[in-house]
């Protein structure tokens, strides 16, 4: 469903993406891994154009999303759920509002949206906190609210940018559990950026390893971690062994 063709992105001093191409099939769960600063976030943000690539194309169902008009882009983004490392909840809204407001703004009926939001919150295990403010929740709970928000619109593609990286280690598992559950039960295509190797091993249909703005290795998790060809792959193998 998704086809990224040789995109490049460079900032003033660094080249974040250097001729990256990637194909993702419908329903597939792709885990992108790589050392810090290798361009993972840039890549995943390019997919919903939170970052504009300098060149290349990104085809979704054959449509180059880099050519979308403003309203088409909005429309596209509504179908793509995005989970940020740092949750990015709206501080002044309640948990329920955070999960439903974009549905209403997209034109949905308010009560319907409320129902959808409640369902999404139930899915992430947060039924009793509807009227709380994000700041009253733990990091893990906040991230689950963010996941619920992404889920509420029923996305066909979900992009995860290190959803557990800024969490207290003892809270990581509750988020990973929710994610694993989601991967298992839904047919949504997922692209997950994470450093959780064992998690990747469990959920990924495919592992993509990046280094210095390039994809250096990709394949089935067992083959990648068992028999890596890239420097990074070898490092991950060692990490896994220990």
């Amino acid at each position: 469903m998704l086809e990224i063709n040789s995109i490049r992105k460079s900032y003033a001093k660094t080249t974040a993406l250097d001729n990256v191409s990637l194909k993702v099939n419908q329903g597939e769960t792709v885990v992108i891994m790589g050392p810090s600063g290798c361009g993972k976030s840039t890549l995943i943000r390019c997919i919903n154009r939170l970052t504009e690539p300098d060149s290349g194309e990104i085809l979704v169902h054959g449509q180059n999303i880099l050519e979308l008009s403003d309203s088409e882009l909005m429309e596209f983004r509504r179908r793509v759920g995005f989970v940020f490392q740092q949750f990015h909840l709206i501080g002044r809204l309640t948990v329920l509002e955070n999960v439903m407001f974009h549905l209403v703004l997209a034109g949905a009926d308010r009560s319907w949206a409320e129902k959808r939001a409640a369902e999404a919150l139930e899915k992430v295990g947060l039924s009793g906190v509807h009227s709380r403010k994000p700041e009253e929740l733990s990091g893990g709970q906040q991230q689950r609210v963010a996941i619920a928000r992404a889920l509420a619109a029923g996305p066909e593609l979900m992009l995860w940018d290190e959803p557990t990286a800024s969490l207290d280690p003892i809270l990581v598992w509750e988020v990973l559990e929710v994610m694993e559950e989601l991967v298992r039960t839904s047919s949504t295509t997922m692209i997950i950026v994470t450093h959780e190797v064992s998690f990747a091993l469990r959920v990924a249909d495919r592992i993509v390893l990046m280094d210095h703005g390039r994809i250096v290795e990709e394949g089935h998790p067992t083959s990648v971690f068992a028999d890596p060809i890239s420097e990074i792959g070898i490092k991950y193998k060692k990490l896994l062994a220990s």
């Binding site: 919903n48 939170l50 403003d70 309203s71 909005m74 429309e75 596209f76 983004r77 509504r78 793509v80 995005f82 940020f84 740092q86 949750f87 990015h88 909840l89 709206i90 501080g91 002044r92 407001f101 974009h102 703004l105 997209a106 928000r149 619109a153």
Partner: peptide
């Protein structure tokens, strides 16, 4: 600018006007 909130709005497919009205100005 509260970049996180604005970025969330963008990712959620809100228009700039909606971001302005619902996210930026109220806070």
């Amino acid at each position: 600018v509260n970049a996180k909130e604005v970025m969330a709005g963008q990712a959620l497919g809100l228009s700039n006007v909606q971001i302005m009205r619902e996210i930026v100005i109220p806070s």
